[in-house]
């Protein structure tokens, strides 16, 4: 059994990550999942959240917004609807959209969409802050 995972993170527009990693944490639709080498074949939908992986003893974090996950024979394929590396995130913009989404959500103008936007903004902020520390 291999002691590493082949992690691929792709969005419709580009490939973000393609490397050997020791472990992955994925924001599944129904909660976070950890994947280690030797995992059974798995298919899942993704939610919005932070995707973390460890390679060479270092932890990297990405913001992932919806999509699909496939685990097969130590290949982890993350088909994200959208994803960003921590350093690409514009924290100021995320805070602005967080405030806007909060207002909309409390006004119940556009309930589900506003909550989804809020989750995206919060994920971005959390990912950016985790990496800065």
């Amino acid at each position: 059994m291999a002691d590493s995972l082949d992690l691929e993170v792709v969005t419709p527009e580009r490939e973000l990550v393609h490397e050997q990693v020791a472990e992955v944490q994925v924001p599944g639709k129904d909660g976070y999942m950890g994947v280690l080498p030797g995992h059974a074949p798995l298919l899942s939908e993704l939610g919005t959240g932070a995707l973390a992986y460890v390679t060479g003893g270092r932890r990297h974090v990405l913001a992932v917004h919806g999509g699909f996950l496939e685990v097969i024979e130590d290949h982890v394929r993350v088909l994200a609807d959208a994803a960003e590396r921590a350093e690409e995130i514009d924290v100021e913009r995320a805070r602005v959209s967080q405030r806007r989404a909060q207002q909309q959500a409390s006004a119940m103008a556009d309930g589900a969409d506003a909550l989804a936007a809020l989750a995206r903004a919060q994920t971005r902020i959390a990912v950016a802050e985790q990496t800065q520390r």
Binding site: E8, V10, T11, P12, E13, R14, E15, H18, L43, F68, E70, R77, L79
Partner: peptide
């Protein structure tokens, strides 16, 4: 755009 399309087809 190719890797995503290929992976999506398989899944």
């Amino acid at each position: 755009a190719r890797p995503y399309a290929a992976a999506l087809g398989k899944v």
